[in-house]
Design a protein around this nucleic acid. Sequence first.
DNA 1: TGCTACTAAATTGTATGCAAAAATCAACAC
DNA 2: GTGTTGATTTTTGCATACAATTTAGTAGCA
Lengths: 233, 233
Amino acid sequence: MNEMTQPTPRTTLHEELVGKLREMIFSGELRGGDRVPEQKLCDQLGVSRTPLREALKVLGNEGLLELLPNRGARVATLSEADIDEIFPVMGALEALSGELACANLTDAEFAEIRAMHYQMALHHTRGELAPYFQLNRQIHDAILKAARNPTLEAQYNALVGRIRLARYWSNMSKERWDQAMKEHEEILSALEARDGKLLSGILSQHLENKRRTVRQAFREGGTEVQGTGVAYD
Amino acid sequence: MNEMTQPTPRTTLHEELVGKLREMIFSGELRGGDRVPEQKLCDQLGVSRTPLREALKVLGNEGLLELLPNRGARVATLSEADIDEIFPVMGALEALSGELACANLTDAEFAEIRAMHYQMALHHTRGELAPYFQLNRQIHDAILKAARNPTLEAQYNALVGRIRLARYWSNMSKERWDQAMKEHEEILSALEARDGKLLSGILSQHLENKRRTVRQAFREGGTEVQGTGVAYD
DNA sequence: TGCTACTAAATTGTATGCAAAAATCAACAC
DNA sequence: GTGTTGATTTTTGCATACAATTTAGTAGCA
């Protein structure tokens, strides 16, 4: 009766592998352009090729891997064109998430977002980039969650995943950082007023500005960062 | 030298299968809720389970199939909640496509869309629903193409695929049909003026109206139609 | 040296085999 | 008639085996 194995994995191997491989890509263990040799990964992860290959097909379909017939998989890379392509779509989705969030946000959720906002503002004044980025992301995530639309969430996260293939800090200028912080003030006040249309417009512009920042970092070959994935705002 | 086989399929079996299975779902050969027995499909398609299973995983990730651990795959079904969830996202994407199309549309492309529009108007006045639907779809596709954003296209088409799981005509009322036609007049004129913001708003509203129509058809259990997938406007 | 042709090794694509889990069904008790 | 138990069949998950394709490596030659 006393099973010392997993309580109940209740998941298939290939699903786990999808998650693991995603993490390996985001963490930089697998870098853009790298080949993904099946056998080597199988040995490393202790599974056979069958479930691994199933996972590769899924990630290929998501755009995180590039699958070349008879020539294996490569971690996808991001071009400037890709960035210019993906951000507008993210912008449209984030704008929608803002609008829906305004319609559905509870007071408790708003309070939490406000708390994160002020914490983030503190990091901004102190010039602490990394924790700023983390809170920034949590805020956007909270808004997305508040939209109460899993399909929207999934689509958005798929795009975030692709953007994370570009793994560098945006070397954000002081001006851009201040600007971003100002945009976040507007985001918070639109949220508080539950003004969906207003928030939607702000977020759309916010994402367009992000695009420019990331694009520039890409051009300049921004500082690579280990293990955290891309951070931007 | 004279190979009488395929010129060169240049594609893997699992990719073909993804396409074939999608078609089988859209055509209604596989209906929502149906189990997808691996062995039976393998015999039917003349392939082994390995590539088929790879395809199933991909379609599961796309939301066209529901994958239950140890219990196989089922063709996904669409609930009212799903419709309410998916259409707003499609609306945001279609609004973006309109905006980008206005920025990128060539005169030739516009001319073609206008031609399709008038053809569609003709079918409307004649009360020919099926060809109306077809042209309607072609017009929206042409706008999407004109946006010149493959990522947007892919995301949009994934959602259209899920909506197509609901396989019935929207029993469109005369009023709604007239209204839809009027919206299409506005779409055409905004396109001609290359007024992105305007078109974006029209399309967003247009999709919200579609949502209501489809939702109602769903509620009323609209007339099922064989082989064409869902049609709506 | 640089190029081509050919061979061998490695890697991928597909099929098959086997163990584990679920579904089916029949006998039985109530 | 209903519901439960347990054996049998079916189906799925994963591993392995084999075939096909690509890659690498080497020898031959200009």
